[in-house]
Simulated assay, not measured.
Amino acid sequence: MPASGKSLVCAALAAASGVLALDGDTLASGAHAVADGRRDYLAFWAYLWQLGLEIQDNGLIPVLCGVALPEQVLTTRMEASVPVHFLALTADEATIRARIIGRPGSRKGIDVDRHVALNEELRQSRVGAPDTLTVLDTTSWDREATVAAAQEWCAAFTAPDAALQ
């Protein structure tokens, strides 16, 4: 979710061995499907699938930090044998509103209600095996707690004895 700590988590996970963490905001700024106000999220995630598979082919685990619903990503899956592990950073409605409105450099005209609705939809999302979805409610967490939880989540897939897909 916007203002949930994605960029903070992305920077922290970038230090993990064997991981290439990319910020979705940076990727979206240059992706034709979502640049300049476009909202073709399926085309955007199809593009990120291609990018992720290329990263994986080069021996790294891609971690893409961005705003998405699992259905958007899974609908565009390019390689059925590659499971997706989602980490959803969410918060209660009041916290989401306060974080979006109060964030430094907040874009004018941002549709806070749309993001609140997206947050709730994400909190209710489910995925089937072999994919996984971990939902973390960061309502009362500080930056350090959010980063620690994300690093623990990432470690489950990057540990030498983890069953990496």
Rank of each mutant, 00 (worst) to 15 (best):
V82K: 11
R103Y: 14
T132K: 05
S29L: 11
L89T: 10
R103V: 13
R77V: 06
R107Y: 11
P104I: 10
T139N: 06
T158H: 09
D57H: 05
V116N: 11
T75K: 12
T76S: 09
A68P: 03
P160R: 04
Q56I: 08
A148T: 08
Y41V: 04
I96F: 05
A43M: 05
M78Q: 14
Y47A: 09
G59M: 05
L53F: 01
G102P: 01
D36W: 07
C154V: 07
H32E: 11
L60E: 01
E93H: 01
E54Y: 00
W49E: 07
R99M: 11
P62R: 01
L74H: 01
T139A: 06
A98G: 08
V116L: 12
W153S: 04
A35E: 14
C65L: 13
T158L: 05
G105V: 11
T95F: 00
D137N: 13
D137G: 11
I100H: 07
L133N: 08
A117E: 12
T134D: 12
L89R: 12
A33E: 14
P62Y: 02
H115Y: 15
P62G: 01
G37W: 08
R39M: 14
R126I: 07
A148M: 02
W153V: 03
A155F: 02
F157N: 06
D57K: 07
V116S: 11
